[in-house]
C-alpha cells in the first residue's frame, strides 16, 4: 500500500458528511447501485490512495480556500483504516440489497452510516479507537490492514 501524506483534518470531516448523506439516501431508496458505488469509493480510498476521494478534491478546491488555514495535520493511516471498515459494511450491505436480503442491507448500511456520522459530527473514528477490540473479536475486519507498509 502506498503511503499518503498527512492531511488537513477538516477534509475528512467534510467527506464524512457527504458519505453520511449518500448512505442516508441508500437507506431511504434501497438502491444497491448507489451503495455499490460507495463501496467502490471506500475500496479505492482504503486500498489505493486517499487522493482518489473526489470529495477530498471538492474540499480542496471549493471549501479550503474560503476558510482559515490550519497547521493541524492528521495522519493518513487511521483515515485509510476507517475507509476499510466502511468498505466491509458497504460491501455486506450491497450484497444484502442486491440479493433481496433487504434486512441485511439495512443493518449493514446503518452500521456504516453510524461510523460516518460519528466521524462527521464528532470527529470520532470509532474503528480507529477500537482497532484492538475489532482485532480481538472480529479479526476479519481488522486483519486486511494489520500490517500496512506505512
Amino acid at each position: 500500500m502506498p503511503k499518503d501524506a498527512p492531511v488537513d483534518p477538516r477534509g475528512p470531516r467534510f467527506s464524512a458528511w457527504i458519505t453520511t448523506a449518500v448512505l442516508a439516501v441508500v437507506l431511504l431508496t434501497g438502491s444497491w447501485r448507489l451503495l455499490a458505488a460507495q463501496t467502490v469509493l471506500f475500496a479505492m480510498c482504503a486500498f489505493i490512495s486517499l487522493k482518489l476521494n473526489p470529495w477530498g478534491h471538492l474540499y480542496r478546491y471549493a471549501v479550503q480556500p474560503r476558510i482559515t488555514p490550519t497547521s493541524e495535520r492528521e495522519e493518513a493511516g487511521p483515515l485509510r483504516f476507517a475507509q476499510g471498515v466502511g468498505f466491509v459494511f458497504a460491501l455486506i450491505g450491497t450484497v444484502g440489497y442486491a440479493s433481496g436480503l433487504t434486512a441485511l442491507g439495512v443493518v449493514a448500511t446503518s452500521a456504516a452510516l453510524v461510523a460516518a456520522l460519528l466521524n462527521a459530527a464528532l470527529g470520532l473514528c470509532l474503528g480507529c479507537e477500537l482497532y484492538l477490540l475489532l482485532r480481538r473479536h472480529a479479526p476479519a475486519l481488522a486483519r486486511p490492514q494489520s500490517t500496512p507498509s506505512q
Binding site: L27, L28, V106, V114, L117, L118, L122, L126
Partner: peptide
C-alpha cells in the same frame, strides 16, 4: 419505510455513543 426507521435509529445510536464517550 424501514429505511426511515433505520436512519432515525442510526442517528440515535450516534447520539448515545457520543454521550457515553464524552
Amino acid at each position: 419505510m424501514t429505511g426511515v426507521w433505520a436512519l432515525l435509529g442510526a442517528v440515535a445510536v450516534v447520539a448515545v455513543i457520543g454521550a457515553v464517550l464524552r
